[in-house]
Nucleic acid binder design. Structure first.
Lengths: 179, 179
DNA sequence: GATGTATAGTGTGAAAACTACACTAACTAG
DNA sequence: CTAGTTAGTGTAGTTTTCACACTATACATC
């Protein structure tokens, strides 16, 4: 009774996985009559985006078996939860082009190849390397960290960081991210 | 207990205004703690788009004073309903460019000027007449009805209709509406 | 230390899309 | 028949998009 929907979503996520301080957004509210055969249940679904490498899962109270699964190899889900996931993936794909949410899925420091690979995976299409780099760099939303990858057995790539401040500022002036 | 959220939204709209058979979509679910000072209320909001001229309001059971109001001249709204409306307008503005929802707000038969005027109103910017026509016609989603306006005191404009079938078909092939 | 292997990083030209811009056409009212 | 109102149309310059292939750098291995 004393927390908002978003607060509740954040709390549940924390309780079940230990994850905090991430991008979280309302997805959709599912309210069909027979979703759960036992009872009438309305679900306000939220989705989170997260850099998987930076977050260890610590299953705590509710779920003792929280774990990562590739989208293509999910275990069976309860009720209509596969439908919820489908809606979430569609939302991610739809939003990736028009909002800089891809960065939520990468480490703070990332290479352009990592970013491109992320886009290719989510959008399910290949992108031209030169054109991709040209476009993303021309937005001037990436900070060149003057650092390179470590521990790779080939030419090390430069590391970049997303400039959130500048994006917030440009957005106020009517700028639209589009990739 | 026996109707989905969407069914409930459609029923409420019908009961309060007599309006049926229109575009209706879930907007957002509002669940802050103190939205309604009397009680904890979670609202799953839906928004509808409608050709105002084609629908007479028939206030029936619940609300005896259903009426049209210009967005800029609304009466005071209860609770956080102004916030809900703001979210709805933002959604409309955001969606207008990428989905052909503008047609929901016009009569079935409309002129290009009407369509342009609608876009200009919602987007709050002026558009060039020639460029607008070029672009919308190049999508080949409008059916030329070979009819003209009636009862206007100037040159009568041609009437068009949105080709929903063709759009559905193109969409499956990966076409994206954008204006 | 030479060679192989893997990924990083870079430029150009053709085609397409976008933008800015002003006049004539058609109809009605008076 | 004239005035007033909106419909309807084309072009040239600029920008953006797209397709495309080679060199650079780092490490591993022999």
């Amino acid at each position: 009774m004393d927390e908002s929907l978003e607060q509740a979503a954040l709390r549940e996520l924390r309780e079940e996985t230990g994850i905090t301080q991430i991008f979280l957004e309302q997805l959709f509210t599912f309210g069909d009559v027979d979703r759960d055969p036992r009872d009438r249940v309305v679900t306000v679904a939220y989705y989170a985006l997260i850099d998987l490498n930076a977050h260890q899962l610590k299953a705590t109270t509710d779920a003792s078996d929280a774990a990562w699964f590739p989208v293509a190899k999910l275990p069976p889900l309860a009720f209509d939860h596969d439908k919820i996931l489908t809606v979430a993936l569609k939302r991610l794909k739809g939003k990736l082009r028009y909002e800089p949410i891809g960065f939520e899925l990468l480490p703070k420091k990332f290479t352009l190849s990592q970013l491109q690979h992320l886009y290719e995976t989510v959008l399910e299409e290949t992108l031209d390397k030169r054109n991709f780099r040209k476009k993303i760099l021309s937005m001037e939303l990436l900070i060149d960290l003057n650092e390179t990858e470590k521990n790779v057995s080939h030419r090390a790539a430069k590391l970049y960081q997303f400039d959130e401040q500048k994006y917030a500022q440009l957005k106020e002036q009517g700028f639209n991210f589009e990739l």
